[in-house]
Design a protein around this nucleic acid. Structure first.
Length: 673
DNA sequence: AGAAGGTCGTTTTTT
DNA sequence: ACGACCTTCT
């Protein structure tokens, strides 16, 4: 490691003129965190204590203290979070914070790798594989090796992808992972190693990186090329990390690299809100922070400004039931407020009717719709409610459902762009070739072999002529499309037009039933594309920025009233609302059926509930259906979640639904007395 | 042989 | 609504 020599600020910058009255707008603990000096800092912040606000002000403070914005890095959990925080910081300082670098670990690493990829044997224009793409590659390799014809059941593509991803994200050797989580596949250890090796070779050969590669290849780059590590870290005078409790070992490692020159890190997190264990996150990371950064100053934020005391009473009560004890007790300045309510509905439809009707009631009392949120464990938990809201004309957006970028038609269009960007991208080739009539797995594989074997002009006419006669014509048209796309200086919007011309008839044939809806999505996509400077940026955004499908719909409807939010609890992290409805509080849902046998996993489900409850400012409703309709197993009686059973009525108030007979169901007012 | 079409069983959370 | 798997068509 290079020797370092620290310059102390000169007299001038020390007397920086501050335009923001920090001491007046922040409480004492926040002020201490915002104005903390150099060196490593860990801010342990409970839910609703102004964590985001503190980070925003710290960014502004650093800029005002004379740190150039481009030397500050703000790492957040989503790119949306980074954008919002930097916008707020910029508002505080008339735009001066807009040049702060911000984003997710994945997007920041992507930027580094784009620059240095050739150093580790990848093209600058390497493609990014999402989890589905990665699984598809593994499926091809699995078949090539003949593992689909084993006597005993061999793991399927999605399982393989999950297994290999866990090895990296959890830092567990394959053997240990198999013993702990996949004992049924333990005999295949050697075969799995072979497959993992094939996968590495394949990605390198075709210029592909999956999500995990973005992190581990950056680590590899820093480890093997000290000069690159030094030059990147030298430009990062301040590193701020949000949601530190949800980082995994690779991310913690990256933070150490980023801060390895200046040693100025501010990490913010709450161990009680760690909810990404399945992705290798470990809340213990947050306690290891002081070990990794000697001399860490630990600061705390404890005053809750978000929720009323009755809501915090429930949250505290729930958390106290955790296996592992948290020394955490949230207190609010707002002592009054309504008790959270628990509602037992007869079935999912009644639960949906209750939520919809209570929303309309709150709206009549003056609460804006976009100050209400419905939270749930899994994205499909809201299907009945979506129907009900549609019936009543209540606008909504849904976060955490199916992503636009994961829809088949969007992946198809992206595949054309990917081939244009990286002709060796076999995954994209496979996709576009399979769209041609008469092309299945075999023909596609043969064509990919021919194309990727060309060293210079892969898209030449000669290449096209070597294809089987039956696809020569359609492949020729495909090649002409790629010629158009790669022509110099063709605007991205034009490129999408060319793709849609080619793709339209294919889409119409493939999805005759819902062609107009899908076509509309693609028009949105083309509209979004024009905001990007080039193909690579657009493709990166598509791969790393989740674009929710219904969020697009909401923009399109141009309604004057902002919509209600429907969200998975995971996607609601960091958000807050006046009223929160938590639906499907059932055994097998929250906690998930997958988590029932492991104490650590159960604790994570409980923290998930804790996160959901602490999103609420003044109103909190928990509900569950007594009878669940299951499409396959028929109706059955469900048990309320163990986490909310047996809570004293002084903390969680039962709310009886009264139905006016015969129908439609009419609901009683919140407080009948 | 390899593509296309039909049927059955199934759904955690995300970069 | 989607994938895995099986059957039928070219």
């Amino acid at each position: 490691m290079a020797r370092t020599f620290k310059l102390t600020p000169s007299g001038d910058s020390r007397k920086a003129h501050f335009t923001i009255p920090y001491a007046e707008v922040l409480n004492e603990q926040q002020y201490a965190a915002v104005t903390a000096g150099s060196g490593p800092h860990l801010i342990v912040a409970g839910a609703g204590t102004g964590k985001t606000r503190t980070l925003v002000y710290r960014v502004a403070y650093l800029v005002e203290s004379g740190v150039p914005p481009e030397n500050i890095l703000l790492l957040t959990f989503t790119r949306r979070a980074a954008r919002e925080m930097l916008m707020r910081a910029s508002d505080l300082l008339d735009g001066r914070c807009s040049r702060v670098a911000g984003g997710t670990f994945h997007s920041f690493c992507l930027g580094i790798l784009r620059r240095y990829a050739p150093v580790i044997g990848f093209p600058n224009g390497f493609s990014i594989l999402d989890a589905t793409d990665a699984a598809d590659v593994l499926d091809v390799l699995r078949t090539d090796r003949g593992f689909h014809r084993t006597e005993k059941r061999f793991p399927k593509k999605n399982t393989l992808q999950a297994m290999f991803s866990s090895v990296w994200n959890r830092g567990t050797p394959l053997r240990d992972l198999l013993e702990a989580d996949y004992p049924q596949f333990i005999d295949f250890e050697d075969a799995l190693r072979t497959l993992a090796h094939d996968y590495e070779v394949y990605k390198r050969r075709h210029g592909l990186m999956d999500y995990d590669d973005l992190l581990r290849r950056t680590i590899e780059l820093f480890e093997n090329h000290n000069n690159i590590r030094t030059s990147v870290a030298a430009g990062l005078r301040q590193v701020l990390v949000d949601e530190y409790q949800d980082t995994n070992a690779m991310q913690a490692r990256l933070v150490r690299f980023f801060a390895s020159i200046h040693n100025n890190v501010t990490a913010v997190g709450d161990d009680a809100q760690s909810i990404y264990r399945f992705r290798g996150a470990d809340f213990r990371n947050i306690f290891d922070f002081p070990k990794h950064f000697p001399g860490t100053e630990v600061l705390k934020l404890e005053h809750n400004y978000r929720s009323t005391q009755p809501i915090l009473d429930l949250a505290n009560h729930v958390l106290s039931k955790a296996h592992r004890k948290y020394d955490k007790e949230l207190f609010s300045e707002e002592k009054d407020g309504e008790r959270p309510a628990i509602v037992a509905a007869t079935d999912e439809q009644e639960e949906a009717a209750f939520v919809a009707q209570m929303m309309l009631h709150l709206r009549e009392e003056g609460m804006p719709l976009d100050e209400m949120a419905v939270l749930f464990r899994s994205s499909y938990n809201s299907f009945e409610l979506e129907v009900e809201l549609g019936r009543r004309g209540i606008p909504f957006v849904k976060y955490g459902g199916l992503k636009l970028s994961e829809a088949a038609h969007v992946k198809d269009v992206a595949a054309y762009l990917r081939v244009a960007e990286n002709v060796w991208d076999a995954v994209a080739w496979n996709r576009v070739l399979r769209l041609l009539p008469g092309v299945g797995p075999k023909t596609a594989a043969d064509v990919i072999e021919i194309v990727t074997a060309q060293s210079d002009d892969a898209l030449s006419d000669a290449t096209a002529q070597s294809f089987p006669p039956r696809i020569r014509e359609s492949a020729g048209r495909l090649f002409r499309l790629f010629k158009t796309l790669t022509a110099d200086g063709l605007h991205l919007g034009r490129q999408l037009e060319a793709i849609l011309d080619h793709y339209d008839p294919i889409l119409e044939k493939k999805h005759a039933d819902d062609f107009p809806k899908r076509r509309q999505d693609l028009d949105h996509l083309a509209g979004m594309a024009s905001a990007y400077a080039n193909r690579a940026d657009f493709l990166a955004a598509l791969a790393l920025d989740p674009i929710e499908l219904t969020a697009l719909d909401a923009e399109a409807t141009d309604d004057d009233e902002r919509p209600v939010v429907l969200s998975t609890i995971h996607s609601a992290k960091g958000l807050e609302f006046d009223a929160v409805f938590l639906i499907r509080a059932l055994e097998g849902v929250l906690p998930s059926a997958y988590a029932l046998k492991d104490a650590d996993e159960l604790d994570e489900e409980l923290r998930l509930l804790y996160v959901a409850l602490t999103r609420a400012r003044t109103q909190l409703f928990i509900s569950y259906p007594i009878i669940q309709h299951r499409r396959f197993s028929g109706d059955y009686l469900a048990d309320p979640s163990r986490f909310i059973a047996d809570i004293p009525e002084t903390i969680l108030e039962p709310l009886q639904l009264l139905r006016e007979s015969p129908s439609p169901p009419e609901l009683g007012p919140h407080d009948p007395g």
